[in-house]
Design a protein around this nucleic acid. Structure first.
Length: 821
DNA sequence: ACTTTGCATGTGCAT
DNA sequence: TGCACATGCAAAGTT
């Protein structure tokens, strides 16, 4: 076919080469559309001819530009430019596969068109909700296969049974069977989870090399409860009718990146206390094919809400997008800023700035007329809905709440709804409202579904009145919803510190990543490429014999089980997973822990937390934030360690780490975003640099000692020749070095001023070094390269002087030093 | 004096 | 660096 894949991003504006179109492409549009003939001729979404003549290539937006991992085998694949033609394949369940994996999957699909009994291999049906064992990444392709087969089967039938049908009427599995075996799936199907996805794209690469394959592009949607990979998002689409399906055959959609930090789905308790799945569905592609909606605008609606909504309107509702109301949206001006992509995708095309009146009905069927218009803005457009105030007030929405837009099919009538923000997370997190109800306590409601839900689902009437009664300064503070994320009142900050510490205890290394062993100060550290995952809370106690142990409570029977200290548990753990004590690997096995022991442990723990809380409350002047908050928490954590010393034990994270440890290693952010700049002068960075410096000094010293010994063995050389020689290189620098070293030595030898870097076992060496000029000189020599290293990093005398300030940060170390000492 | 309108600008974020 | 978007603000309109 000779199709070229070009990445045209960043090449400036282009004009569509289709003479009938000639649309000037915006940056978004110029992504990778190119003609077979090559060059940089860009075809746009508008004219559609690009679909005939070119294929899509997007740069995968990886941090390492141009490279991405195969979702299946983790091999690196080039970005998909010309050089890497046919090296990858987009997978329908998200991600990309290298050619070999893609082939394997394809073969598997062909071989298993029938749905076998083990279709849910690798999945666990819990409470009717099939979930994937999160720790079985290696097996995930098995469940992929199963899921693919199921989805394929269902979808094939959807397609063949008439695309006008929004609901799946004749899935291959008889509905009854399906309900029995996979009630959740049945629910998804009936609520049209398995319907045609908009996620149709030209099969490229592998397809080109497998022309004989009769497989049409497989497109299906899974709600996130069926995520084959934990933490990896599969985009779900609620529904699609024939028209849009056909359209989508020609519309290649850009896969938006999944929301970070990817809690795209959650369970949501409704008013009855039952739990329903939050639907986080990428909305259907429509209109001009612009469907690059930011995940934050993806509609999040539970099945129950959707069903209720559909029931209220006696129609089928397709959620389109939603938006958290900003202060200006919800203000008196009555202008609701529409996300550009949403406006262009789901609202009528307008050419005049004045726009057009647009009629939207609310959930109760009441019709509202808004002016849909745009303002020119930086060579772009800013879309607004004017006159929304009455509607928003009618729905009792305010800044921070969510307004939702849906459409009725068939017909396309727009429907506006609303959802009250939860008491906590929602209002704070406008940027990533990934979990509308982050606390999973049913804080959200789909306003307008019923009045009840507006008042009861979102928050209690007290709560809402509380919010309405927010003082004016408070309101002013909350005006900027974005910044509001950063705001927290005293109690929240306190809560953060506590929950942060508690969260620390839940961290477990990602099961998928192998640690790199790093030696720092003769200790092995495990460095993980992937951020930690949350594991089950366990407690560490000491037995009367002094032996330390870890206790975990079964999520099923609530019995406590003894575990090895190094046992790492997944977030949900039951007796059956007790591989360390087979006698107690069943919930029927009796608990072997004295209830009194447990009681005493928990009383200690409770007290310590209380202590922490009260301590912090009393000394709460100037709210700590960011790393300062961490530092504060670290100090608090120190007292915790002391209070509950008997209950702590080492873990595998690093030799000095204990649960709740707030030492420098433990508080470091995971790799990737959020890492500190090289020039960062925060406490953490200073400490890290200081430690590195000390480490290097020590190494140099040792090396020099060895060399000196060797030299002594051969011929008696004046002890400080080496040092003097080096000192002569740059007297000024060495003056500084000398001072620094002297400071370190002074500090380390100064009672009450612990040098946290010092290995107590080597303290004597240092002292001896301080006493003898020869060793000092050697050390000066050793410091020289380090200083040269440190200078660009702005490590100054002050930084060294400030060491004491970071003592709190390394409380675990202090503890260790004390213990060692 | 107050409200509405239209645009400009600052900020955050993705690339 | 560019885009999207929240919001500021001045001009115009209205009471």
């Amino acid at each position: 076919m000779g199709i070229q894949k070009l990445n045209l991003r960043g090449m400036g504006s282009n004009i569509c080469m289709n003479q009938a179109c000639r649309v000037t492409t915006s940056c978004e549009w110029k992504k990778g559309w190119s003609l077979k003939s090559g060059g940089f001729a860009t075809l746009c979404y508008s004219c559609g001819s690009a679909y005939e003549n070119s294929v899509f290539c997007e740069t995968f937006h990886s941090k390492e530009s141009g490279w991405r991992e195969c979702t299946v085998c983790r091999k690196r694949i080039h970005c998909g430019c010309i050089a890497s033609r046919y090296l990858h394949e987009y997978m329908d369940f998200g991600g990309i596969a290298c050619i070999s994996c893609a082939k394997r999957l394809e073969i598997r699909l062909v071989q298993s068109m029938q749905i076998p009994g083990d279709i849910l291999n690798g999945t666990v049906v819990t409470n009717g909700n099939p979930t994937v064992n999160e720790n079985q990444i290696g097996d995930s392709h098995v469940s992929f296969g199963g899921l693919l087969r199921l989805a394929k089967a269902v979808e094939t039938d959807v397609v063949s049974s008439g695309l006008d049908q929004v609901k799946v009427d004749k899935p291959m599995l008889k509905t009854g069977d399906q309900n029995k075996r996979f009630p959740h799936l049945a629910q998804q199907c009936s609520s049209s989870a398995f319907v045609k996805s908009d996620n149709i794209r030209p099969i490229q690469g592998v397809k080109d090399t497998n022309e004989s394959s009769p497989q049409p592009p497989i497109n299906f949607s899974l709600t996130s409860s069926l995520l084959p990979f934990p933490g990896r998002n599969v985009e779900g689409i609620t529904e699609q009718n024939k028209g849009s399906f056909q359209k989508e055959q020609r519309s290649r959609n850009i896969l938006p990146k999944p929301p970070k930090p990817s809690p795209t789905v959650g369970t949501e308790a409704n008013n009855n206390g039952t739990v329903s799945q939050v639907r986080v569905a990428r909305p259907p592609a429509e209109g001009r094919g612009r469907n690059q909606l930011l995940p934050r605008y993806w509609p999040r609606i539970t099945d129950q809400e959707l069903q209720q909504l559909s029931g209220e309107l006696k129609s089928t509702i397709v959620p389109l997008f939603e938006k958290i109301l900003s202060a200006s949206d919800a203000g008196r001006i009555g202008r609701l800023v529409l996300p550009k992509a949403c406006a262009e995708a789901y609202f009528p095309h307008i050419t005049q700035s004045e726009g057009i009146p647009i009629r939207i009905q609310d959930i109760k069927g009441k019709e509202w007329t808004f002016q849909f218009r745009f303002w020119p803005n930086n060579n772009s457009r800013m879309y607004v809905l004017e006159g929304v105030t009455p509607c928003i007030q009618n729905m009792q929405l305010e800044a921070g709440d969510t307004v939702t837009f849906s459409k009725i099919v068939p017909g396309g009538q727009l429907v506006v709804g609303g959802r009250k923000a939860s008491n906590n997370g929602d209002v704070q997190d406008s940027q990533a409202p990934s979990i509308p109800n982050g606390d999973s306590t049913g804080e959200t409601s789909f306003s307008g579904v019923t009045d009840n839900m507006v008042t009861n689902g979102g928050r209690t009437s007290d709560d809402s009145s509380m919010q309405r009664n927010t003082s004016i300064p408070e309101k002013k503070k909350l005006r900027n919803i974005k910044n509001k994320r950063l705001l927290m009142n005293t109690d929240e900050a306190m809560e953060l510190q506590i929950t942060w510490e508690e969260a620390q205890e839940l961290f477990r290394p990602s099961p998928t990543s192998e640690p790199t062993i790093v030696m720092v100060e003769d200790h092995e550290f495990e460095e993980f490429e992937e951020p930690p995952i949350f594991g089950k809370t366990t407690v560490f106690t000491s037995r009367p014999s002094g032996e330390q142990e870890q206790l975990a409570q079964c999520d099923n029977c609530s019995k406590w089980r003894r575990l090895p200290l190094n046992a790492l548990l997944s977030a949900k753990w039951t007796c059956s997973e007790n591989i360390w004590d087979l006698k107690r690997s069943s919930c029927s096995a009796p608990e072997d822990i004295n209830p009194r022991d447990l009681e005493s442990f928990f009383s200690i723990n409770k007290d310590s937390k209380k202590q922490r809380f009260s301590d912090n409350k009393t000394s709460n002047e100037g709210e700590p934030c960011g790393l300062d908050a961490l530092a504060t928490a670290a100090v608090l954590g120190d007292s915790i360690v002391e209070l509950g010393e008997s209950s702590v034990g080492a873990t595998t994270r690093h030799p000095r780490h204990r649960p709740g440890c707030t030492c420098i290693v433990c508080i470091q952010p995971p790799s990737g975003k959020g890492k500190h700049e090289p020039s960062c002068k925060c406490n953490v960075c200073l400490t890290v640099r200081r430690r590195f410096k000390t480490l290097m000094m020590r190494k140099k010293k040792r090396q020099s000692e060895r060399e000196a010994e060797l030299a002594l063995g051969k011929e008696k050389v004046p002890e400080d020749i080496a040092g003097q020689a080096l000192l002569s290189i740059n007297p000024l620098e060495n003056e500084v070095n000398y001072n620094d070293a002297q400071i370190e030595l002074e500090e380390s030898s100064n009672g009450g001023q612990l040098d946290l870097n010092c290995d107590p076992h080597k303290e004597d060496d240092l002292l001896a070094a301080a006493a003898g000029m020869s060793l000092t000189s050697l050390m000066n020599a050793a410091t020289l390269p380090m200083d040269m290293y440190l200078r660009p990093c702005m490590i100054s005398r002050n930084a060294v002087d400030g060491e004491e300030n970071v003592g709190g940060l390394v409380c675990g170390d202090v503890e260790q030093e004390r213990g060692d000492g």
